[in-house]
Amino acid sequence: MTGMDSQRHPIVTESDVVRVRQVVRTLAVAAKLSLVDQTKMVTAASELARNTLVYGGGGEMMIDLVDSGRRRGVRAVFIDTGPGIPDLDLALTEGWTSGSGLGLGLTGSRRLVDEFAIDSSPGVGTTVRVVKWSR
């Protein structure tokens, strides 16, 4: 899979979360995702961007179009240098939510995308990479 035109967007304020949605929508359209798949990808990005802001203390999103040869897709990577997630398995358990009730983010957005990878180390930060492919 090859990427092109990688863009970097800060996630520091609530309006950055809104901007992230718009950017993801634009690229999802460019990748020729269906309307439903665009909506799923934008919603997943909104959840993940909010996680980056609220739990990660801010960070950024890297986004690009990807090409597998047969299909195009959108890849978004959410990066923060926050406290990290001590127990990833628990955080990815269905129905689990942290105390502040902003749950759903990880498990919910995982269901909305085609590829989902997360890397988190306590004290270092969290990186979540998602891809949605055109059909």
């Binding site: 309307l35 439903v36 665009q38 909506t39 799923k40 919910g108 957005s109 269901r111 909305l112």
Partner: peptide, 14 residues
Amino acid sequence: MRPAVAITLVELGL
């Protein structure tokens, strides 16, 4: 509610 939004909400589990 748009249909695509409804589909996404169900899948999101909300």
